[in-house]
């Protein structure tokens, strides 16, 4: 028993020491492929205020107000077991964090090409997919913003982190 206690103490002390080191953002694509094997377990350590994906559509020559692209779904009792749309929402949330991480680590001179990044395209796809589900076929624009005073009907935009040009409803064919 004593040996076990000593081994566990050494293990968790080592983890504590390594946790002092800030985890670098992995840019190496090969290492990235295996990142599932090295979980950091740093859950809920990110900034509380993850920006929200907003979009607006162009009707004739005017834009509608900005609206939230994907709202966090209400949680029901059966979500204890099966929660596909909740997990889709959480995946969207994680994606936004990944996008921000990429944005913050990208060299300034490459920022003008950020729209060519896969993360950017996926963000655009989130908006397109929501529009598709709602049957909206207008040109649109999206942005990532910090918001406050959020409730079911309204919110206030504090600042913008990223804003897209006006995009055509017709999907790009540069694949």
């Amino acid at each position: 028993m004593i040996i076990l206690i000593i081994m566990l103490t050494i293990y968790f002390l080592t983890i504590t020491i390594f946790s002092m080191v800030k985890t670098p953002y992995i840019e190496n694509p090969i290492l990235n492929l295996f990142k599932s094997f090295f979980p950091s377990w740093k859950l809920f350590d990110e900034s509380v205020n993850t920006p929200i994906l907003l979009y607006r559509i162009k009707v004739l020559e005017h834009f509608t107000d900005w609206q939230i692209c994907i709202r966090a779904p209400k949680i029901k009792w059966f979500h204890l077991i099966l929660n596909p749309h909740g997990n889709y929402y959480l995946a969207h949330h994680s994606h936004i964090q990944q996008l921000l991480s990429e944005l913050s680590t990208m060299p300034d001179q490459q920022l003008e090409f950020f729209h060519q990044q896969v993360s950017y395209k996926i963000t655009e796809n989130f908006v397109r997919y929501e529009m598709l589900k709602k049957g909206i076929e207008n040109d649109f624009q999206f942005k990532l913003s910090n918001i406050k005073n959020f409730n079911e009907k309204s919110f206030q935009i504090i600042d913008d982190i990223l804003i897209s040009p006006v995009l055509k409803y017709q999907y790009r064919i540069d694949l």
Partner: peptide
């Protein structure tokens, strides 16, 4: 089951389009 219930989101008209991700 959850993946299958949201399979449209990873089709080529969805969010995670393989043609984009495979790059």
């Amino acid at each position: 089951i959850e993946y299958l219930l949201i399979k449209e989101s990873f089709s080529e008209s969805g969010v995670w389009r393989w043609k984009e991700i495979q790059v």
